[in-house]
């Protein structure tokens, strides 16, 4: 029962954050919800083993979530449609339009670059932890992170002064 209570406390504390990460990766709230539930289910099944390890369960959950998401999209052959055009924007960058632009620009990035940016700059992980979670080298994380930020800046164009001042 203690394990059950521990899991419930962990899941209730982390579900919103997990779903946010999933949404930022897939831009689909329903898929994000499904993947979060799948992740928590796997966490529940593996909970006795996870808690025996001296690692942060959320780190494990995030890894399961990202892998589930990448696997899901891999097997679906990605419903994602890559485009080099951003949604039309009004000439006057009002506040709402600027806020929408960053999410849209993020969605233009390749999946892995998006994951790197989110882990590094949204989740605030070190280069090393990001590399471990994604199974890539630290140099890849560094170069792709810089490149992805540069792509974001170029997508955002003039708005970058507002967003990345």
């Amino acid at each position: 029962m203690r394990k059950e209570a521990e899991f419930t406390a962990f899941a209730e504390g982390g579900a919103t954050r997990l779903r946010q990460i999933a949404y930022l990766m897939c831009r689909d709230w329903h898929l994000a919800q499904d993947l979060t539930q799948t992740t928590l289910t796997k966490m529940y099944v593996a909970w006795p083993r996870i808690t025996r390890r001296d690692t942060d369960p959320f780190l494990y959950a995030r890894k399961v979530l990202l892998n589930s998401l990448l696997d899901h999209r891999r097997l679906r052959s990605s419903g994602e449609v890559a485009t080099d055009k951003l949604p039309e924007q009004p000439d006057t960058p009002d506040a709402t339009a600027v806020r929408l632009t960053l999410l849209d620009a993020l969605a233009q990035l390749p999946r892995r670059d998006r994951a790197i940016l989110l882990l590094r700059h949204w989740e605030d992980h070190s280069v090393e932890v990001t590399a471990e979670i994604l199974g890539v080298s630290t140099s890849i994380v560094k170069t792709q992170s810089m490149r992805a930020l540069a792509v974001l800046r170029s997508h955002l164009g003039e708005d970058r002064e507002v967003l990345f001042s």
């Binding site: 899991f7 899941a11 209730e12 579900a15 919103t16 709230w29 928590l40 289910t41 099944v45």
Partner: peptide, 14 residues
Amino acid sequence: PPLGDIVGAAASRG
């Protein structure tokens, strides 16, 4: 959308 009882559902499926 509301998160709902995602924790309860996950525990139940688990």
